[in-house]
C-alpha cells in the first residue's frame, strides 16, 4: 500500500499532512496566535500618541504605519517558526524523510501565513479606519497586504531557517530579513497612497502579485537548503 515515491497522490499526502499538522499546532496555542496581532494593534496605537492625533496627519502616514507595523508583527512570529521543531527532532525527521522537502516547506509557510499574514490583512482596514485612512485606500491596502505578506513570510522563513540552530537568533534574524522586505514595503505603501490620492493603484498591486508568484516558486528551495544546514550538527 505504500505509494511509490513521487507519485501525485503521495505528494498531496505529504503536503496535506504537513499543513494539517502545522495548523493543529498553531491552533493548539491560541496565545501565540494572538500575540503578533495584539502587537500589531499596540504599535498602531502608539503612533497617534507619539506623533499626533490630528486626523489629517494620521491619514497621511496611515499606509506607512500600517505596513511597518505589519512588517514587525511578521518578524515577531518568525523566530519560533522552526525552533520548536528543531528542538523536538521533528525538523530532522522532516528534512530526512520528506521527498521532496519543497512541499512540506510550502505547507509550513502557508500554515504560518494563514495564522499571521491573513489575520493582519483582515484587521488592517479596521485599524486603517482608526488612523483616518481614506476609505478608497482601504481595499488597496488590504489587497496589498494579502499579496505582500506571503512574500514577507517566505523571505522571513529563509532568515528563520538560517538562524534555527543559533542561540542568538532574534536580532540577527531582523538584520537578515528586514532589508529584504524593502520592495514589498514600498509597493504596498504606494498602492494605498495612490488610491488615497485618487489615482489608480493597479500598477504596484500587479508588481506585488508578480513578486508573490516568484517568491512562492523559488524561495521554498532556499528555505529547504537552509533547513538542511540547520539540522546538521545535532
Amino acid at each position: 500500500m505504500r505509494a511509490s515515491p513521487g507519485s501525485e497522490a503521495s505528494l498531496w499526502v505529504l503536503f496535506r499532512g504537513q499543513l494539517r499538522r502545522d495548523l493543529k499546532l498553531a491552533f493548539g496555542q491560541p496565545s501565540e496566535l494572538a500575540n503578533p496581532l495584539a502587537f500589531f494593534v499596540v504599535v498602531i496605537t502608539l503612533f497617534p500618541l507619539g506623533v499626533s492625533p490630528e486626523p489629517g496627519v494620521l491619514a497621511g502616514m496611515a499606509p506607512g504605519v500600517l505596513w511597518i507595523a505589519a512588517l514587525l508583527a511578521t518578524l515577531l512570529g518568525l523566530e519560533a517558526l522552526f525552533r520548536r521543531d528543531r528542538d523536538d527532532g521533528t525538523l530532522e525527521q522532516m528534512v530526512l524523510r520528506a521527498q521532496p522537502l519543497y512541499l512540506p516547506v510550502v505547507a509550513r509557510m502557508l500554515a504560518h501565513w494563514m495564522v499571521t499574514g491573513l489575520p493582519l490583512t483582515l484587521l488592517a482596514p479596521v485599524l486603517g479606519g482608526m488612523l483616518n485612512l481614506a476609505p478608497e485606500a482601504r481595499l488597496p491596502l488590504m489587497l496589498g497586504l494579502a499579496l505582500g505578506t506571503p512574500v514577507l513570510v517566505l523571505l522571513g522563513g529563509v532568515g528563520a531557517a538560517l538562524t534555527v540552530g543559533l542561540r542568538t537568533g532574534g536580532v540577527l534574524l531582523a538584520l537578515l530579513v528586514l532589508p529584504l522586505f524593502v520592495p514589498v514595503l514600498i509597493l504596498g505603501v504606494s498602492a494605498a497612497e495612490l488610491a488615497g490620492s485618487g489615482l489608480d493603484p493597479t500598477g504596484p498591486l500587479l508588481w506585488l502579485a508578480a513578486g508573490t508568484s516568484f517568491a512562492i516558486t523559488t524561495v521554498p528551495f532556499a528555505i529547504a537548503a537552509a533547513l538542511r544546514i540547520g539540522v546538521e550538527t545535532g
Binding site: V158, L172, L175, L176, P179, A222, I229, E232, T233
Partner: peptide
C-alpha cells in the same frame, strides 16, 4: 545592511563549513 547581515550570520554560526553554506544561500537570495 545586506553586507552586515552576511557578516553577522557568519560570525554567529560556529562550524565554518555550515557558516559558509548558510552565507552562500543568503548571498544568493
Amino acid at each position: 545592511f545586506l553586507y552586515l547581515g552576511i557578516m553577522g550570520l557568519r560570525r554567529a554560526i560556529e562550524r565554518p563549513e555550515a557558516a559558509g553554506r548558510a552565507c552562500a544561500i543568503l548571498a544568493i537570495v
